[in-house]
Design a protein around this nucleic acid. Structure first.
Lengths: 192, 192
DNA sequence: TTTGTAAATTGACAATGTGTCAAGTAAGTA
DNA sequence: TACTTACTTGACACATTGTCAATTTACAAA
């Protein structure tokens, strides 16, 4: 891929992201038009629509330094602090990725690549949950009601994107409400 | 609608339900073939695919006396008993409707009728949650951490279909695990 | 028996969106 | 000048939902 080609690729990702964020239609035609190239040229850069959307999420991750964001919770000393920090970081990141993640979740129903990409993301999110649960266990503050595996599952489901959607879009929770309440819920469920 | 027509309608619903339950493809063509009529004849009975699928969920409700099932929790005397009974009833009903609900949830993205039908179901489910929360409040056993509205939201999200999918299909929880753990979680979160 | 009607069939077709293919162009590079 | 890369243009295949018109089948009523 030449320098020119890289620019076009970025232009496509930027245009697609913008469309997704503004909630406009994002058919291949729309993305092409927004990027100022022909629809067919999209397929010179991305094999399928699923591949393109997945690339957009990675682009979003890079734009937001998502690794650093989530890694911040690793700095916490106590398990409880780590749990709070993780909820703050991930919970704050959901609205950033959601607009892009939504069509991928929709495609995951039928498209194998989309499903794999989304599962991978959810597995990564679960690792963050597991780390927080382990930190609690190390402090001897993990409630004995559930084993670590189960506790991780519970936290993971609690912090899942569909739950965020239900509570914010569905029930009108503000982002601040969401974060604050999820912290309370998590502590109540997991901390002894 | 004549008697004959009613039979055909039921035959369609039964055939569609069977296809959905076995997880086979459920295009209009497939449903028609399974019901032993032409694809076009489906449109003599249901305006759209969304309408047909919605009718299948109602058919499932009837076959299972869903009203009675969920009403059972109303018989509980204490708030805690009512909460348990509701989780048992609704949690047990999810796997029954899920196969049919899944394509409706998928369509809800784009189809207005599907979205409305699904929202209505979720609103009904939330009423059950609200009743349990109110019963707890009447007993003076609702935790003061959250107001009744917020507590209802939390229970509602916790018992939502996507959460059930994540924990059972995604994390391998058995149905028995799911019910037992959700009871523990709900009590821990809501009961003082 | 004839006639009318409801339910269904057959076959064709529009619309939408993804993905493919072939031929051609514009620009830079060896 | 010849070659290569990125891109364009236009056409087309495919899947699926939904529509339309003409026809058939069966039953019921006169």
């Amino acid at each position: 891929m030449s320098r020119e080609s890289q620019n076009t690729r970025t232009r496509i990702l930027t245009a697609a992201l913008k469309l997704l964020e503004t909630g406009e239609k994002t058919r291949m035609t729309d993305i092409a038009r927004a990027a100022g190239i022909s629809r067919q040229a999209l397929y010179l850069h991305f094999e399928t629509r699923a591949d393109l959307l997945i690339a957009v999420t990675r682009h979003v991750d890079e734009l937001n330094n998502s690794d650093d964001l989530l890694a911040a919770s690793r700095a916490a000393t106590t398990g409880v602090a780590r749990l709070d920090a993780y909820i703050e970081a991930w919970g704050g990141y959901i609205p950033i990725v959601y607009k892009v993640a939504k069509p991928i979740m929709a495609m995951a129903e039928t498209d194998e690549a989309a499903r794999a990409a989304w599962n991978e993301r959810m597995a990564a999110m679960r690792h963050g949950c597991a780390a927080a649960v382990d930190a609690l266990a190390r402090d001897g503050r993990l409630r004995s009601e559930f084993d670590a595996e189960t506790a991780t599952d519970i936290l993971w489901a609690q912090l899942s994107v569909p739950t965020w959607v239900a509570l914010t879009e569905g029930r009108g929770w503000s982002q601040a409400d969401y974060i604050a309440r999820q912290k309370l819920i998590a502590k109540r469920l997991l901390v002894a």
